[in-house]
């Protein structure tokens, strides 16, 4: 069982993640994007961006860095082998652009029990170097209990 007392717990900001142009292209190919904004610098610049922009789900890479801290936190007591991804949401203030340096701050929004299982919802805020919010990523993990 996940420790219900971690509800409301905030984790410190991660080290900055530098978003590379080729990383965006690699991720775009992986999610089968053919959108020029993800791949072609000139197309992205013609649309007003400074460089290629990331696909809408790329923020998961940044979220994951915060999540890793929680999964390693003995107080939270989350058994990764029992974790199933329940739902995911990304609310973008703006797209992630190549060259961005991003940090994320995670808060455990809720811990609920569902029979033997636990449902943990995380809210991760992703900021750029100017401390402007880029994306809020909300993720619910289902942690299976003993049947």
């Amino acid at each position: 069982m996940v420790n219900p007392n971690v509800q409301g717990k905030k984790y410190p900001a991660t080290d900055p993640y530098l978003v590379g142009r080729e990383k965006i292209r690699e991720f775009a190919h992986a999610v089968k994007s053919t959108n020029a904004m993800n791949l072609d610098v000139f197309a992205a610049q013609a649309a007003g961006y400074t460089d290629v922009i990331a696909p809408p789900t790329f923020a998961v890479v940044i979220q994951e860095r915060s999540l890793a801290t929680v999964l390693a936190d003995p107080e939270a007591d989350i058994d990764f082998l029992r974790v199933v991804h329940g739902d995911q949401r990304f609310i973008h203030a703006r797209p992630i652009v190549a060259g961005d340096e991003l940090v994320s701050e995670l808060e455990v929004a809720s811990v609920k029990s569902l029979g033997a299982h636990s449902m943990v919802t995380f809210e991760t805020k992703i900021y750029d170097v100017d401390k402007e919010l880029v994306c809020t990523a909300i993720s619910t993990l289902v942690v299976r209990g003993d049947e």
Binding site: A30, V31, K32, S33, T34, N35, M37, N38, A47, Y49, I53, A54, P55, P56, T57, V60, V84, H85, G86, D87, Q88, R89, F90, I91, H92, R94, P95, I138
Partner: peptide, 29 residues
């Protein structure tokens, strides 16, 4: 699950022509 989520949204991206136009995206697995 995140691959399915990431591929699925491409239908909306292709329609609008700009990945940056997706301001809010959610799924349940």
């Amino acid at each position: 699950g995140m691959l399915t989520m990431g591929a699925a949204v491409q239908v909306a991206v292709d329609w609008v022509g700009n990945a940056g136009a997706i301001v809010d995206y959610q799924v349940r697995f």
